[in-house]
């Protein structure tokens, strides 16, 4: 890969001798020859992506480029047409098989929040720790309260999703994912459904998360977030990665004409 800034402290045991493993650290997530198709039409093809621990990756590209589909493939939510995805060195999914469940170790935040509408904010956060991890309720409640505080919503713990603004709902969704102590956080256009006034508060939480050392992959249209918070930018067109490098390089001096045009358009707004 382009950079090898894997932190020595986070190095995991090498289970088998792939190229990256030889570099010293097992990437948190690694896609090899990844392909995904809907109704016989390839949506994602030949994606090679390896993300070391602690890195924040912004995935950019025009609509319909396959960014969200790629993210869902990395999450193990879509069957693969070709290639494989490894999570912490172990196969998560490969072509022809059903993706394996990693039980909350990959957290995901969705464009439409997908909060559970019948549960309060605190219950949303505590549900998985209690039901999937058998954490005692009292402990889970305290943890939920702490996580909601962390995303600035401690006051709203007892509110139901319908009582919260879009930005607040999305922050609850982030807290909910964090409750399972994920090793990787995936964001699928987390601010696209938000009014601009609420976008900032969600981005601030994401920035904190990235700064805290979490490994993060974000599909986004927020150029500012990519510029300020991402270590690395991946640019996709027609289901393929056409640009992959440090944010400063890709955003200011892209190799591809297609990327340049896209960036001019986005920044021209």
């Amino acid at each position: 890969m382009n950079r090898s800034d894997a932190r020595p402290g986070l190095t995991r045991s090498v289970r088998d001798g792939t190229g990256d493993a030889a570099a010293g650290a097992v990437p948190v997530i690694q896609a090899t020859g990844l392909g995904c198709s809907y109704h016989g039409r390839a949506v994602v093809s030949d994606v090679e992506l390896s993300v070391p621990a602690g890195q924040t990756v912004a995935v950019l590209g025009p609509s319909g480029a396959g960014k969200s589909t790629m993210l869902r493939c990395l999450a193990g939510l879509e069957p693969l047409h070709s290639g494989s995805v490894r999570f912490q060195g172990e196969t998560l999914s490969r072509a022809g098989g059903r993706p394996r469940s990693v039980g909350g170790r990959i957290g995901m935040v969705f464009q439409q929040f997908n909060l559970f509408p019948h549960l309060s904010a605190a219950q949303n956060v505590a549900l998985a720790p209690v039901r999937a991890r058998r954490l005692p309720k009292k402990q889970a409640r305290a943890q939920a309260r702490a996580l909601l505080d962390r995303v600035g919503l401690g006051e709203h713990a007892d509110h139901y999703p319908y009582e919260l603004s879009g930005g607040q709902q999305q922050r609850v969704a982030i807290a909910r994912a964090l409750a399972m102590e994920p090793e990787l956080m995936l964001f699928d256009e987390p601010t696209s459904a938000l009014d601009p006034e609420f976008t900032r508060e969600v981005l601030a939480v994401m920035r904190d998360l990235a700064d805290s050392g979490m490994t993060v992959i974000v599909v986004t249209h927020e150029m500012n977030f990519a510029r300020q918070s991402a270590d690395r930018v991946v640019f996709m067109v027609d289901g393929r990665i056409v640009e992959d490098g440090p944010a400063s390089v890709v955003l200011t001096n892209p190799r591809q004409e297609r990327t340049r045009r896209f960036l001019d358009q986005m920044l021209g707004e």
Binding site: A75, G107, F116, M180
Partner: peptide
């Protein structure tokens, strides 16, 4: 909504638990 199941699956809930705690109440 399908997104409810997707979110619950990503949180590590089993299919039975998704049904019991997320889908059936709604």
């Amino acid at each position: 909504d399908r997104g409810q199941r997707t979110a619950a699956r990503m949180l590590g809930l089993s299919e039975a638990k998704i049904l019991r705690w997320v889908v059936l109440p709604q």
